[in-house]
Amino acid sequence: MKRRIPLTITLIVGLIVICSEFIPHRPFSQISSELEVWFMIISGFAILLGQLNLIKTNVLKIQYKQRNWPYFVITLASFFLMVGTGALWGSQQNAGLLGHGTAISSAIGSKPFDYLFNNVYQNLQATMFSLLAFFIASAAYRAFIARTTESILLLAAAILVMLGNTSLGTLLTGWLPDSLSFLHLPKVSEFIMKYPTTAGQRAIMIGAGLGIIGSSLRIILGIERSYLGGD
């Protein structure tokens, strides 16, 4: 009962979605678009569940005075700060419980939620993302060592594309005569991207696509049920 009904739901829903691809006739066309709205609503609740879990685990950590617990107070405080400002005055064009908070937003230039978002959240996010520039450099230094045929190919492709993608490539090979224009680094880099890289990516897409198709088929047919967990 605890597993059979969910498995039946998966089977029916999966088949409806597949059938509606081939059958334009009602009711399939309508059912599948209604299902898509349901999907959105249920995943909305799932996101809320995540936040509730976050509160629960952090409260527990603080309660039991786990190592570094004062930091988790900061987590909860910033969570409630964000939720509080959003709930009271809303965000962008959405009104909150206290309306749009025109007084407070004219004082600080935008709604408190948006202010936090623009000045703190966004900067944290962008900086976190920009760490990648440093990591890509150190990963390249460490990994691109010409040891085997594979690693030489990896290294050569990376360096040619890196040169070709900047003005460096133009500087280095721009002087070559037109008859040798295929050796222009930007052209070489474009060639690598267009042919061998596309070939490699296509092979991965086809393989991974089949892997995904196999898994979804097993799930629809109820053969793969690990996502339901234990009994």
């Binding site: 520039a133 230094y141 060592i145």
Partner: peptide, 15 residues
């Protein structure tokens, strides 16, 4: 361009 040059130099040093 300069950043790429730095990365390439470090790859060469590594090798």
């Amino acid at each position: 361009s300069l950043a790429h040059l730095i990365i390439i130099i470090f790859i060469i040093i590594g090798n």
